[in-house]
């Protein structure tokens, strides 16, 4: 097992840093207020919008969301940390989500996962060096009739065989949806186009994985 040193001397939120949420994003979050009885209820939509805009939800973004919703930053962190889809550190341009539930396991999901790991050279929760792909596993994706399933960003790939993986990973359109998209949780139009891989200089930290540490122990 190897240890990685993380610099904790720098404060995670810098007091005088420029805001990360633009006015357009804040307005988009506020546009959800009439839907709910309380402002706090807008938290999940807000987190989706921020993640879609910035790529992940940084500590700074959490405090700014708290500002918009008029709740305490710890409430935002409390909720964010509960849900597995929210990234608190940078992720790759495309997220590969592999289903590991029983139907997919019975139909060869583990082999597919191993192939992806080998192709990309990363483990679960890891991100490739070039920032193109992050890999995660999830419980049932509700596509059991087409097991094994693989989600690339929003696109569901069905009946994926291990030997299809190399071709699938080089296909640039592998996350393109066949249906019309709704832009409800998308970044506001001014922000579009700016979004790219959020992975940066911190990617080494982002790639740590308790899973690989457990494997090493075995």
């Amino acid at each position: 097992m190897s240890w990685k040193a993380i610099d904790r001397n720098q404060p995670v939120v810098e007091k005088d840093a420029a805001p990360v949420l633009s006015d357009a994003v804040r307005d988009k979050i506020r546009s959800f207020f009439p839907r709910y009885e309380t402002k706090r209820a807008v938290l999940l939509p807000a987190l989706h919008i921020v993640q879609n805009t910035l790529g992940y939800i940084s500590w700074q973004a959490m405090t700014e969301i708290a500002e918009v919703l008029e709740i305490h930053p710890s409430d935002v962190m409390n909720t964010t940390s509960f849900y597995t889809h929210f990234w608190t550190h940078p992720k790759g341009e495309k997220v590969l989500t592999v289903c590991r539930s029983i139907s997919c396991e019975a139909m060869g999901g583990a082999k597919m996962l191993d192939t992806i790991k080998k192709e990309l050279g990363i483990d679960e929760h890891g991100t490739t060096k070039d920032g193109r792909y992050s890999l995660v596993t999830e419980e049932c994706l509700a596509g059991c009739d087409h097991a094994p399933c693989l989600l690339i960003n929003e696109k569901m790939h069905k009946c994926v065989k291990a030997e299809d993986i190399p071709a699938l990973l080089v296909d640039v359109d592998n996350d393109k949806l066949s249906m019309e998209r709704s832009d409800l949780f998308d970044p506001p139009s001014e922000e579009k186009g700016k979004q790219a891989a959020s992975v940066g200089q911190d990617s080494a930290i982002g790639a740590t994985s308790d899973v690989s540490e457990m494997r090493e122990a075995e």
Binding site: Y83, H85, T97, A142, L151, K155, M156, L177, R181, S182
Partner: peptide
């Protein structure tokens, strides 16, 4: 809707 339902979300929202 569960978060994993992306395609279904777009269809239903439409």
């Amino acid at each position: 809707l569960r978060g994993e339902f992306h395609e279904q979300f777009h269809i239903l929202q439409k």
